[in-house]
C-alpha cells in the first residue's frame, strides 16, 4: 500500500466524566477502505466525528496528508481540514430549503470559491454519478431516503475530499433502499477513494473493505485484513459481536 492519508495517534475523547475514546491508533493508507465495526456505544461514531474535528479530541494527534490538524489548529485551519474530509451522516442532513442541485453546489461556491457555472457543472456530474440526474431540481422532502443519502454523498464528493467518512449511512433507510446507497459506495471504493465506513453491513465490509477495525468501549480491540478479522477473529469480544450480528 502507498503512504498513509490519515494517521491517528493516541486519540482520547471525553464527554464530561465519560471517556468515549480511550487511546485510538489508526493508520489509513491512500485508496483503502476501512470498515469500523462494533456494538453501539463503542465510540465508532465519535471516532469519525473526531477525524473531521466536529468533536475535537482531548488528547492525541491526527495527521491528514502529512499535516497535523490537532493542537492549536483552529479557525481557518479547521475549515480547511473539514473540506478535505467528506462526511456522510446517518440522518442525511440535506439542507431542506435547497434543491438537490443547490445542496451539491452551495459549499463549492461559498467555501471553494468556484464560479456558479463551474459549481453547477460539477454538481450535475456528481448527481449523474450517483444516478440522480433527473432529480436535480427536487427538494429533499420529495426524495426517498436512499435518494437523499445519494445526494448527500454527491454533496460531500463535490469538495474533492482526500478521505470520505461514512457514519452508519444506511441505518436510517428502509431495507429496499440500502442497496442503492451501498452500490454508490462500492463504485466509489473501486475508483480508489479512501474511505472510513462505520457500518453494521457485514456483507458490505466483506466485499469492499481492505481492513476491518473492531471497536468496543472506546478502544480498538482488533484490526486487520477483512478476511482475517471477520472470518477468523482472535479476540473473544470480536467473536461474540460477530456471532450476534451474523447469527452464528
Amino acid at each position: 500500500m502507498s503512504e498513509p492519508v490519515l494517521e491517528l495517534h493516541g486519540v482520547h475523547k471525553r464527554f464530561g466524566t465519560l471517556e468515549v475514546l480511550r487511546g485510538i491508533d489508526l493508520t489509513v493508507p491512500k485508496g483503502s477502505v476501512v470498515c469500523v465495526l462494533g456494538p453501539s456505544g463503542s465510540g465508532k461514531s465519535t471516532l469519525l466525528r473526531c477525524i473531521n474535528l466536529l468533536e475535537p479530541p482531548d488528547e492525541g494527534r491526527i495527521v491528514i496528508e502529512g499535516k497535523e490538524i490537532t493542537g492549536g489548529g483552529g479557525g481557518d485551519d479547521l475549515d480547511y481540514v473539514r473540506r478535505r474530509v467528506g462526511m456522510v451522516f446517518q440522518q442525511f442532513n440535506l439542507f431542506p430549503h435547497k434543491s438537490a442541485l443547490e445542496n451539491v453546489r452551495l459549499a463549492q461556491e461559498k467555501v471553494l470559491g468556484r464560479s456558479r457555472e463551474e459549481a453547477t457543472a460539477k454538481a450535475h456530474e456528481l448527481l449523474a454519478r450517483v444516478g440522480l440526474s433527473d432529480k436535480a431540481d427536487e427538494y429533499p422532502d420529495r426524495l426517498s431516503g436512499g435518494q437523499q443519502q445519494r445526494v448527500a454523498i454527491a454533496r460531500a464528493l463535490a469538495m474533492d475530499p482526500y478521505v470520505m467518512l461514512f457514519d452508519e449511512v444506511t441505518s436510517a433507510l428502509d431495507p429496499e433502499l440500502i442497496k442503492e446507497v451501498l452500490d454508490v459506495m462500492r463504485e466509489l471504493a473501486a475508483e480508489g477513494m479512501t474511505m472510513i465506513v462505520v457500518t453494521h453491513e457485514i456483507g458490505f465490509a466483506r466485499d469492499v473493505a481492505n481492513d476491518v477495525v473492531f471497536m468496543d468501549e472506546g478502544v480498538i480491540v482488533e484490526e486487520g485484513p477483512v478476511r482475517r478479522v471477520i472470518d477468523a477473529p482472535r479476540e473473544e469480544r470480536t467473536k461474540r459481536f460477530l456471532g450476534l450480528v451474523l447469527g452464528h
Binding site: R84, F89, Q91, N93, A107, M159
Partner: peptide, 23 residues
C-alpha cells in the same frame, strides 16, 4: 433547526458564520 444541519455545513468546510447565513 436540527443540530445535524450545522454539522453538515461545518463538515463541508463552512465557517460558523457562513453556515449561519446560508443554512
Amino acid at each position: 433547526v436540527p443540530r445535524g444541519q450545522m454539522e453538515a455545513a461545518r463538515a463541508l468546510g463552512m465557517s460558523h458564520g457562513r453556515a449561519m447565513r446560508h443554512v
